[in-house]
């Protein structure tokens, strides 16, 4: 593969205590593409995700070895400022997690942390990012209502807007539609399709059809190892490994 990659994982191993969850993984995630990570439950997808923005650091008894390079910079290096790494990646969780504050403050949260104080500019940016997540028209009259009052689907799009507002390069979605109804799922999928023009998107999904619909690139994991990765077409139509074949055919449990 000659394409440019944004994240390079090199010999990454992760253990919780004595339980090794990721076993010497190496992979390049292509830039400006939508990559889907698939694999059975418990194979380490979330764990891999958490190493990308070092959210894994806070876990008790965690051991990480190997390298993760983002734009060529080892994020496990010595002089790395961790908030700087995390700002590069917007995160969508399985269940939406609105911050306990108003809709406006949710979107403004990251920008305020970066020192943006000017009210006009803040309001303009909040509007911009709410529009980007197709929420502005629905919510413009109740910006100061608590975010928890929104529907689950709206909350997830708010989380997307909030993540985009810190101007990340990468969007991480850990099963971002699994708690949503079909319409809201479609909203998010549509957004992802639009956003992948400008961002690198990496998502975990259990829905193979979703991976097929959205992804340019597929990573298949099994029991803490990467079995196979490649362009979506190849993985689904012409997988090289028996395991991958079984998984994408759904003869797996």
């Amino acid at each position: 593969m000659s394409e440019k990659s944004i994240i390079q994982v090199k010999n990454l191993s992760v253990s919780y205590g004595n339980h090794q969850v990721l076993k010497n993984l190496s992979i390049d995630i292509p830039d400006n593409k939508l990559t889907a990570i698939i694999g059975p439950s418990g194979c380490g997808k979330t764990t891999l995700f958490k190493t990308f923005n070092r959210l894994i650091d806070d876990t008790d008894g965690i051991k990480v070895s190997g390298e993760v390079l983002v734009n060529g910079e080892n994020i496990y290096g010595k002089d790395i400022e961790i908030t700087h790494i995390r700002k590069k990646m917007g995160l969508l969780n399985q269940r939406p997690t609105p911050l306990p504050m108003s809709i406006f403050d949710n979107v403004a949260f990251g920008m305020r942390l970066q020192g943006l104080k000017d009210k006009k500019e803040l309001a303009a940016k909040v509007e911009h990012y709410l529009r980007l997540a197709s929420l502005w028209d629905e919510l413009k009259d109740r910006l100061h209502a608590p975010a928890a009052a929104l529907s689950i689907g709206q909350q997830q799009r708010l989380c997307l807007a909030r993540g985009l507002a810190v101007e990340p390069e990468i969007i991480l979605g850990d099963e971002p539609t699994s708690a949503l109804d079909p319409i809201s799922t479609q909203h998010i999928e549509q957004k992802f399709k639009e956003l992948k023009e400008d961002y690198t998107i990496i998502m975990v999904t259990h829905i193979l059809r979703q991976a097929r619909r959205l992804a340019d690139y597929i990573v298949f994991m099994y029991l803490g190892e990467i079995i196979e990765h490649g362009p979506t077409d190849e993985i689904f139509n012409n997988p090289q490994q028996k395991l991958t074949q079984d998984y994408v055919k759904g003869v797996f449990n």
Binding site: R86, L99, Q114, L172
Partner: peptide, 29 residues
């Protein structure tokens, strides 16, 4: 307070203390 909420605040670039003081205390108020 769910861990996902901590992760969300951290991934927006908040430091640990900012996450605690601005998000967790508020959620737990």
């Amino acid at each position: 307070v769910p861990n996902d909420l901590r992760d969300s605040a951290l991934s927006l670039g908040a430091t640990k203390w900012e996450t605690i003081s601005k998000v967790i205390y508020r959620k737990a108020a």
